[in-house]
């Protein structure tokens, strides 16, 4: 279904080790097409944070190849990787990471200032992006005055305002209640439907099941889980017993 040239993310045999003897990623391969929606599930310590850091160009693989939007990231300098990250990737975090002393609007504008978006376009884009998230009435508010769901939507607005190729969401619903999570998930779905490639890292099977491509991280190995179905009424049965037991601990990102 996905053409070679239409891949936005292509990991080939990626391993990552941390001295002295931690092997966080073991020969991970992953392909996400342009406009795709992928989820990565896994318990704490399974290596999914490491995988996310590699995908987000926040960390480099020890071995293997990573192509992002057609660019081979292996030989890139730190500066070039940073610029690629600013241009091609948008981030959403569990902890939101909004600057407390900037207004909602300023937070979104800041998201574009390092990626080279022309100055005179930033304000209009920020306004449009916040409008898209249904936050046009919150432009001058400070993050502390907003609810958790609103904060995450501000973070989403910031992530997509610069028109990245890929949205990386790290436990986007980890700090939200169920109803609010649902709203954020719907937004992710809509953005994806409009053409944005989305990769979600989560421990919540319900979130994971929203994706069309599902992966499970297990002790450094990444396994595709696309053909398994998810029954929202009985989240416990989505995986084999070992994994389900670990998820039940309710660990965070």
């Amino acid at each position: 279904m996905t053409d070679q040239n239409d891949l936005v993310i292509r990991l080939t045999d990626v391993s990552k080790s941390f001295p002295p003897d931690v092997l966080a990623l073991r020969g991970v391969g992953m392909e996400v097409g342009r406009g795709g929606f992928a989820s990565i599930m896994g318990p704490s310590g399974s290596g999914k944070s490491t995988l996310l850091n590699v995908l987000g160009l926040l960390d480099t693989p020890t071995v293997g190849r990573y192509e992002l939007a057609g660019v081979d990231t292996l030989g890139l300098s730190d500066k070039a990787r940073t610029q690629l990250r600013g241009r091609e990737l948008g981030f959403v975090f569990q902890a939101f990471h909004l600057l407390a002393r900037r207004t909602v609007f300023e937070n979104v504008v800041l998201g574009m200032s390092y990626s080279g978006v022309p100055r005179d376009e930033r304000a209009a884009r920020a306004t449009a992006s916040l409008d898209r998230m249904g936050l046009s009435h919150r432009l001058g508010f400070y993050p502390r005055t907003l609810s958790g769901g609103e904060r995450q939507r501000v973070a989403l607005a910031r992530a997509v305002a610069g028109s990245p190729s890929v949205l990386l969401a790290d436990e986007p619903t980890g700090n939200l209640d169920k109803a609010t999570s649902q709203g954020v998930l719907e937004l992710l779905g809509e953005l994806n439907a409009e053409g944005l490639t989305v990769v979600v890292v989560t421990h919540d099977p319900e979130v994971a099941s929203a994706a069309e491509q599902r992966f499970v991280m297990d002790d450094g190995h990444l396994r595709s889980w696309t053909d398994m179905s998810f029954d929202s009424a009985r989240p416990g049965v989505i995986a084999d017993g070992v994994l389900a037991g670990q998820w039940a601990c309710g660990e965070g990102a």
Binding site: D3, Q4, N5, D6, R34, G35, E121, A124, R125, A126, T127, A128, S129, D131, R132, G134, V160, A161, S163, S165, E190, L191, E194, G195, L196, T197
Partner: peptide, 18 residues
């Protein structure tokens, strides 16, 4: 709701070499 404030519209049917 308006489409995302994107300067580039991404098309799933983009041709090879996109």
């Amino acid at each position: 709701r308006r489409p995302p404030a994107s300067g580039r519209h991404r098309d799933r049917q983009r041709k090879p070499g996109g």
